[in-house]
Amino acid sequence: MDFTRFETELTLLRGTLSKLLSDVLKMLEDSISSLKNKDLVLAQMILDSDEEIDEMNRQIEESVYQILARFRPMGKDLRYAITMIKLSNDLERIGDLSCNIAEKTQQYQNFDIYEILEAKEINQMLKVAIEMIKGAYKAFEERDVDSAIKIWKKDDIVDELEIEVRKKAINRLSDPDFSQELVVPYILLARDIERIADHATNLCEELVYIEIGKEIINIVREEQENK
């Protein structure tokens, strides 16, 4: 195998993945902005851009298949190339979830949704999820196992916050000061963000397995047992 050419092809592919990451993060941030500002034009732009994200994902998949066919990498190089497809798929799914949020702008345009967007749980979930996406991609580029494990652990924060949102939503059903029609979008928004964080953990799990051949959950258990 021509390793120099192989690495050049992977570098070019990482550039495409980086562009996909940038576009998806913008979709996510814009979807929240559209919801907060009841910006129907921006929401529709996000929905319209979904096909571009899907097409970029398809192009990345095809590029990986061509690399595999031309260079026939083995071992870790093979797993790394295949993981590029998984990364692309996860980013595409984050784009889909961003569209879900944009659709809520249309569905709840007549509701005073600002209250749930200012909820500390929602804001913290969003902050951590975005950090996880960026961190997971950086760890993948640098093949940084320790960083991947740290990012993976942050998913617990998002999960706990999502549970807190559901508890508060149930409690607010009997709160006369909270608009009842906001309960459903409050829960659904938290669920979308939680799923976005899950896609970041997927990449971390793949990276760690590629580099050291172990499942993250087993590594974390070993750490806890050795304390």
Rank of each mutant, 00 (worst) to 15 (best):
Asp2Ser: 04
Phe3Asn: 07
Glu7Lys: 09
Glu9Phe: 10
Leu12Gly: 13
Leu12Asp: 14
Gly15Trp: 11
Leu17Phe: 10
Leu17Ser: 05
Lys19Arg: 12
Leu20Val: 11
Leu21Trp: 04
Leu21Glu: 15
Ser22Gly: 13
Val24Thr: 15
Met27Val: 02
Glu29Pro: 03
Asp30Tyr: 08
Asp30Ile: 01
Asp30Cys: 00
Ser31Trp: 09
Ser31Met: 05
Ser31Lys: 00
Leu35Thr: 07
Lys36Gln: 14
Asn37Glu: 13
Asn37Tyr: 11
Lys38Glu: 11
Leu40Asn: 08
Ala43Arg: 02
Ala43Phe: 12
Ala43Lys: 01
Gln44Glu: 15
Met45Pro: 01
Ile46Gln: 03
Leu47Glu: 13
Leu47Ile: 15
Asp50Gly: 01
Ile53Gln: 02
Ile53Met: 06
Glu55Ala: 06
Met56Ser: 13
Asn57Phe: 12
Arg58Cys: 11
Ile60Gln: 05
Glu61Asn: 11
Glu61Tyr: 13
Tyr65Glu: 06
Phe71Gln: 04
Gly75Ile: 06
Gly75Leu: 02
Asp77Asn: 14
Tyr80Val: 01
Ala81Tyr: 07
Ile85Gln: 04
Ile85Asn: 06
Ser88Gln: 10
Ser88Val: 11
Asn89Lys: 05
Asp90Gly: 06
Asp90Arg: 00
Leu91Met: 14
Glu92Trp: 08
Glu92Ile: 04
Arg93Asn: 12
Arg93Ile: 10
Gly95Pro: 10
Leu97Pro: 04
Leu97Ala: 00
Leu97Glu: 13
Ser98Asp: 08
Cys99Arg: 00
Asn100His: 13
Ile101Asp: 04
Glu103Asn: 13
Lys104Asp: 13
Thr105Gln: 01
Tyr108Gln: 00
Gln109Thr: 12
Asp112Arg: 00
Ile113Met: 02
Glu115Val: 14
Glu115Trp: 09
Glu118Lys: 10
Lys120Tyr: 14
Glu121Pro: 13
Ile122Pro: 15
Met125Val: 08
Lys127Ala: 10
Ile130Asn: 04
Ile130Lys: 13
Tyr137Leu: 04
Ala139Gln: 08
Phe140Leu: 09
Phe140Cys: 01
Arg143His: 09
Arg143Cys: 07
Val145Thr: 15
Ala148Trp: 10
Ile151Val: 12
Asp155Trp: 11
Asp156Ala: 11
Ile157Ser: 09
Asp159Cys: 03
Asp159Ala: 03
Glu160Thr: 12
Glu164Phe: 02
Lys167Ala: 06
Ala169Met: 08
Asp175Leu: 03
Asp175Glu: 12
Pro176Asn: 01
Phe178Arg: 00
Glu181Cys: 01
Glu181Pro: 09
Val183Trp: 09
Val183Gly: 05
Val184His: 04
Tyr186Glu: 04
Tyr186Met: 04
Leu189Phe: 13
Arg191Glu: 14
Arg191Asn: 14
Asp192Ser: 13
Asp192Pro: 05
Ile193Glu: 03
Asp198Ser: 05
His199Thr: 01
Ala200Gln: 09
Asn202Met: 02
Asn202Leu: 03
Leu203Pro: 09
Val208Asn: 01
Val208His: 03
Tyr209Arg: 00
Ile210Pro: 07
Glu211Arg: 02
Ile216Leu: 02
Asn218Cys: 01
Arg221Gly: 10
Arg221Ser: 14
Glu223Lys: 06
Gln224Thr: 12
Glu225Pro: 04
